[in-house]
Design a binder for these strands. Structure first.
Lengths: 344, 344
DNA sequence: TTGTATGCGTTATCAT
DNA sequence: ATGATAACGCATACAA
């Protein structure tokens, strides 16, 4: 049953010999596009031989010959962040129907690892890249762009680079969050920002300042988190509390940062939403089952991935086409973590 | 800035010409293993030329020549299940330090998609497979095994196939869960099983029956879920309640099924753990923030992935080595979803 | 319709 | 130490 020493995989040559034709003929018979050049009879013979031998074309050889691999790379900062798997699925759903295969790599938010992984993707001749790790300053992406690498950014952008990108409408989402909190009653609103080295962090933070100022509120209560993580969110909120800031509502840069607030509430004996309301960003799975259920801004992650994939296919088909930025609509999802101050 | 028509990537030949040597010499100079055959002087010249041209070796061509791709495939049923990303990370961490790259594919729990993806991986000449989609009856995996494909199963096994596998110690975990519930007081315990077409489903269900029988309790309260999902878990619990079953505790086949129970509790006005205790399996992220925090059995997913990767490396190094099954220890994590009947 | 010949970019086996 | 040559498996321009 076990077969430690399998016979080598059959090649096109084996098929051709079995069918009594030349490899060129076999190649044409096996390829749907060229099959019509071949008599139906020989085509059948070849295909039968291939079937019998269990022939599977060697994509490596084919790619070398055609200089087309039919693969694109997808660069993700952290697959364990629930935000990204739906993006992956969206990307795959479109690219697969376009005949492409997706090579997912994880960078762990590490620039050196990112460099190595992208280098590996390129050496494997991917035909394009979908990148979710962009920072505002990103020499590597800049360089790739200058080298003519087909590339679409997702969720985040690079400054002054004119790269095609698909993101959620962060500014509108943050504004909606702030308005929702303000409508609950007079209040001070704090903002726990994601890293300002990313466009997402920067855009949301700026939108927060604008939104609170428009309402005549203070825009001073802002703390930056070093990473988009629970622990950094917790640290930021602790810092805010420790400096004696007065507020009854928190907007978090994303859901993970909001979850960090939950930890601090427990530590400090604060009730949410009674003492402090919190609002997240992304609407990652299972937020409705938290204590309390987290109010958040829903971003259509699957669609984000799908649209980015479509854009990449367009880039590959027509390299000269101008770069577009697509902003997908977001929506406020009100749950139990926001309420009028002093209520519940 | 934009470069729609980039110059073609430099090849080894370009480097050789620039350095004034033959391609063979350039190849040897650039490869750390063969560099010592070359004079230090020419090696330097070649490497400098490569640097200057921005040369990157073409892995496709190299793979064709060496018949080694340095890649392995990782077959995942559903990346959006929070259980799998940590496994992916574990696999990657080991394989990368072994010089391999991981190609992740998502099957969406669909057999046809699985077949297509694995075929694609094979045509791309992956050197081995780590498979997390196994069913007890799995003709495709059986066939691959007979063809001598190097393969390690993770989390689930195939019946009667003697494939190397790494899983959590499900039976011990379920037994611990049942004992925990029994210790809380006299009670009827129900079991919401995962699909019995998977080894994980089968092993856990059997362990449940044994555990309750050992305690002199009924083993009749078992319902099978068609999939490992929240909605199927909810449906199973509804079915149990609708047939008037009497129980004060539920063991769920995994955490998602347990989350489905939360939905039904809300629908039917049941309090957890007051009316019914629930216990999950896996300890996926964020369970501690649920209402109530979910008691569960923690499985070391990262380690699962890492060990499977080590096993695969062993299989590749020594194809003749006998298949081993590795059972990693699990641990009960008691949180708020379990309590003595009628309490809190 | 089919066969012949060539080359994709690289490495390995010969020579020298 | 380096160069010449061939070959990996396949697809295609060209010839027949």
């Amino acid at each position: 049953m076990t077969n430690p020493n399998p016979s080598p995989a059959p090649t096109l040559r084996d098929v051709a010999e079995a069918a009594g034709v030349h490899t060129a003929t076999a190649s044409r018979a096996l390829n749907p596009n060229t099959r019509r050049q071949i008599s139906a009879e020989t085509a059948r013979r070849v295909m039968r031989a291939a079937q019998a031998l269990g022939y599977q074309p060697n994509s490596v050889a084919r790619s070398l010959k055609t200089s087309r691999t039919g693969t694109v790379g997808l660069v993700i900062p952290d697959l364990t962040n629930p935000l990204f798997p739906p993006i992956v699925r969206g990307v795959e759903s479109v690219l697969e129907s376009g005949g492409y295969h997706v090579w997912i790599v994880n960078t762990d938010n590490d620039a050196e690892r990112e460099r190595a992984k992208i280098e590996s993707l390129r050496s494997r001749q991917v035909e394009g890249l979908i990148v979710a790790t962009a920072r505002l300053e990103h020499p590597l992406l800049r360089q790739l762009h200058e080298q003519g690498v087909r590339m679409v950014l997702i969720n985040r952008q690079v400054e002054h680079l004119g790269l095609p990108a698909v993101t959620g409408d962060d500014a509108t989402g943050v504004a909606a969050a702030v308005r929702h909190l303000a409508a609950l009653g007079p209040t001070g609103i704090a903002y726990l920002s994601g890293p300002l080295s990313t466009s997402t962090g920067r855009v949301r933070a700026r939108a927060f300042r604008h939104a609170v100022r428009d309402l005549g509120l203070s825009d001073e209560l802002v703390v930056e988190c070093a990473r988009w993580s629970e622990s950094d969110g917790a640290a930021a909120l602790r810092a805010l509390l420790d400096r004696g800031a007065r507020f009854t509502a928190v907007v978090a840069g994303n859901d993970l940062i909001a979850l960090g607030c939950y930890d601090v509430f427990a530590e400090r004996g604060l009730s949410c939403p009674g003492d402090v309301s919190v609002i997240g960003f992304n609407d990652m799975p299972f937020l409705d089952k938290l204590r309390p259920p987290l109010t958040t801004v829903a971003v259509p992650h699957h669609e984000l991935g799908a649209e980015a994939a479509r854009m990449l296919l367009d880039c590959i088909d027509d390299p000269g086409r101008p770069a577009r930025t697509l902003l997908l609509p977001v929506s406020l999802v009100v749950r139990g973590s926001t309420a009028p101050p002093g209520a519940g």
